[in-house]
Amino acid sequence: MSTIDATALPQGVSLAAGSGGLPCVSVTTPACTAQVYLHGAHITSWVPDGQQPVLWCSSQATYSADSAIRGGVPLCAPWFGPGRTGGKEPAHGYFRLAEWELTQADRDGDDVLLVFTLPTERGGLPGIEHAPADLQATYRVRLGAELGMELEIATPTQALELENALHAYLHVGDVRTVTLQGLDGARYADKAPGGRAVNAQSGPVEFRRETDRVYASTESVTVVDPTLARKILVTKDGSHSTIVWNPWERRAAEMSDFGDDEWTQMLCVEPGNALKGRVDLAPGERHTLRATISVDSTQ
């Protein structure tokens, strides 16, 4: 398959050059505005009608064919970080570096459904030797009053220890005032400096320092943001892990594609399957990771 012709797109959907000249799908309907880059099938913006932006992107993000975009919703797969045993490159797998094909675009009322397919030809991508050569992936994105994401991965002939994540960067008013509900009692691995290998969450998650945690949880979570007077609900299916990340001041300053003072306005809440929450696929099996993000401003 190849990317569909721009003239075949439904009303409110267009395909043009975005930042850095990369192909970008733009959506404008009564329900929302949004942008999705073919590079990484990367959602960089989703703004429901009447809301502030729900996703965060760094002002220093790099838009080029050999870099991942900092912010939005990168696709992490078929491994997370350096992989369970370490040493895999690039970090978070090659899905977010691949040039995906837009193979379907439809209107359903005020919602837009986009379907992206991972090309079978992946020459030149780093890290592909660490995954089955015939690995297949389809990514379905529904853009409307809610943001729906569905990543399906299949391995026709070889076994695969699959890690993945919908690495959502959420826009918040001030992360130091935010609480994350829904993980009370969940055990987690703390990967931040000074963190312990295994912990158990007590009450809502609060943010006082660099946070880099992989929670063993299948539950939905809610970001309570008093500064922006809203709640962001993240529901999921096919996910054994919830990854929570904020780099804080020192780590943010070390990243060239991250503004030094931008860490206060973002929080990563990532449905996925990582570390002990991996998914073991036998030849011929497939796995689907689903997540929905919605906003409640009635508090």
Rank of each mutant, 00 (worst) to 15 (best):
G259C: 10
T85D: 14
T218Q: 13
Y37I: 03
T3Y: 03
V198F: 11
C57H: 00
A229G: 02
T85G: 04
E270S: 10
Y188W: 14
E206H: 14
A98H: 03
G203L: 08
G40V: 04
G203Y: 09
L75A: 04
L15E: 03
A274N: 06
T211Y: 05
S256D: 00
T29Y: 01
L160F: 05
Q299R: 15
V221A: 10
V115I: 05
V214P: 08
L228F: 02
D66E: 13
Y63H: 11
L118Y: 06
A189D: 08
L151H: 01
L38D: 10
L114N: 08
A16Y: 03
Y94R: 03
P132G: 07
L135C: 13
T29L: 01
W100R: 08
D261H: 14
V224R: 05
P78T: 08
A98F: 02
E219R: 14
H167A: 11
F207K: 10
S241N: 12
R250F: 09
Y215W: 11
E146T: 11
F80E: 04
W263L: 09
D237C: 13
H42A: 05
Q51G: 10
R250Y: 10
T179S: 13
S220C: 09
T264I: 07
W56S: 02
P10Q: 07
D111F: 05
Q201K: 10
G277D: 07
A105I: 01
A17M: 01
A200M: 15
T120A: 15
V295A: 01
L160Y: 03
F95S: 05
Q60P: 04
L113D: 06
R196S: 12
L233D: 10
N199G: 13
A189I: 09
H287D: 09
T44M: 05
M255P: 01
K276T: 15
A6M: 04
D190S: 12
P30G: 03
V244E: 08
V214H: 09
N164Q: 12
E206A: 15
V13K: 09
A65W: 07
E163C: 11
R290S: 11
N199E: 15
L166H: 04
Y139P: 07
D174H: 05
D261K: 13
G124P: 06
S202I: 15
S294W: 04
P132F: 03
A168D: 04
Y169I: 04
G93D: 05
Q299I: 13
L55H: 00
A77F: 01
V73C: 08
L160S: 03
Q104K: 04
V198G: 00
E161N: 15
T138F: 02
P126C: 11
V244T: 12
H92M: 05
A77V: 07
T62V: 14
S45T: 02
V13T: 15
L162C: 07
V205Q: 11
Y37N: 05
T103D: 00
E129V: 12
T7P: 06
L38S: 10
V224Y: 00
